[in-house]
């Protein structure tokens, strides 16, 4: 008995006040940060929503489908910009997902000797560090001239094709939706490949061994086990990239042409919601500001929608596997 009491005293069951205070303090600090982020998000949404009210009252949901953005007559509709946002982002994904996931696979398997692989991984990540205005400049001076020839060929070859031809129905100029889409693809490539690579590398070695042990080849292992196991991580990367593509402003504004004329053609000059905001906010007042806020709200909503769809996709696929 005596021994037992001695023991408890010796082992100091009681933590010091400082230690307990730190524990509690840490909890409240992190809780405050977490709640703070939520509050900031709600505050922005609230502010934007409030400022958009006059425009919402005037144009209603028709704002989403009307193609006229006319500050002179004070009539606003954002379809051209919504279309521009969706098309450039979709084009960016279409180009960047296969390449980005491919890069991630090459850099996660042991295809390359480590001495080559490590610098490559680093360089891909460095792509994400280039400021977007530099991408814009590079697009103007390098990419646009380079694409002029191929774009012209596309225009001449496909413009007459029914349905699909409408995507190529105007002659390409030095600016346009397609250049913005391609520059976006390059900008989001490192996001997709870096996050996908992390997801692939994180798949436990045991799963790989299990597949090999059942007589799967390297490719079967990769496509039936490793990629499915990393799928939610890859989708997460793609969604982050899509969010970036939809919100990217500077490079797109420099390259897209900033035209509010509706056209389905990729070669036409156009605008996105972000480029519209960047272009017009400085000189806007009254209903125009309110309409810009409305457009911002739409972008907000689009991003949210994309994220919800991604969540649904991931949970669906998880159940199926």
């Amino acid at each position: 008995m005596a021994l037992a009491t001695d023991n408890t005293q010796g082992m100091s069951w009681h933590r010091t006040a400082t230690s307990r205070f730190l524990d509690k303090g840490f909890f409240w600090l992190t809780a405050a940060f977490g709640i703070g982020v939520g509050i900031i998000l709600l505050a922005i949404a609230f502010q934007v929503g409030r400022d958009a009210i006059p425009s919402i009252q005037k144009f209603g949901l028709g704002f989403l489908t009307a193609t006229r953005w006319n500050p002179v007559e004070d009539i606003y509709g954002a379809w051209t910009q919504i279309y521009g946002t969706l098309v450039t982002s979709f084009m960016a994904l279409l180009l960047a997902v296969p390449v980005g996931v491919g890069v991630a696979i090459v850099l996660s398997e042991d295809f390359l000797p480590p001495r080559l692989q490590k610098p490559l991984v680093f360089m891909v990540e460095l792509l994400a560090a280039i400021p977007s205005v530099v991408y814009g400049l590079w697009g103007i001076f390098v990419l646009a001239p380079l694409l002029q020839g191929p774009a012209m060929w596309f225009y001449k070859t496909f413009a007459g094709v029914p349905v699909l031809g409408s995507l190529f129905s105007t002659p390409p100029t030095g600016r346009g939706v397609y250049i913005a889409g391609i520059i976006l693809a390059i900008m989001i490539l490192p996001i997709i490949s870096a996050i996908s690579r992390d997801a692939l590398v994180a798949v436990p070695l045991e799963l790989r061994q299990a597949a090999y042990g059942l007589g799967a080849s390297r490719w079967e292992t990769l496509f039936r086990v490793i990629i499915p196991a990393a799928f939610s991580g890859i989708v997460g990367g793609v969604m982050l990239a899509l969010g970036r593509a939809m919100g990217e402003t500077m490079a797109v504004t420099m390259l897209i042409g900033n035209s509010s004329n509706p056209s389905p053609s990729l070669f036409a000059q156009g605008s996105t919601i972000s480029s519209l905001l960047a272009n017009q906010f400085a000189e806007a007042d009254g209903l125009q500001v309110s309409s810009l806020m409305y457009a911002a709200l739409v972008l907000f909503g689009l991003t949210l929608l994309v994220n919800i769809l991604a969540e649904l996709l991931v949970s669906r696929v998880k159940l199926k596997m």
């Binding site: 436990p204 045991e206 299990a210 042990g213 799967a216 196991a229 596997m321």
Partner: peptide, 27 residues
């Protein structure tokens, strides 16, 4: 690959695939 189809292996740490029970067996 052919060898491993005839000679199966069970590992120290259970390593089922993150798939359904059925799909684990059918793999």
């Amino acid at each position: 690959v052919e060898v491993r189809r005839q000679i199966g292996m069970v590992f120290q740490k259970p390593n089922p695939f993150p798939k359904s029970i059925y799909d684990n067996i059918a793999f």
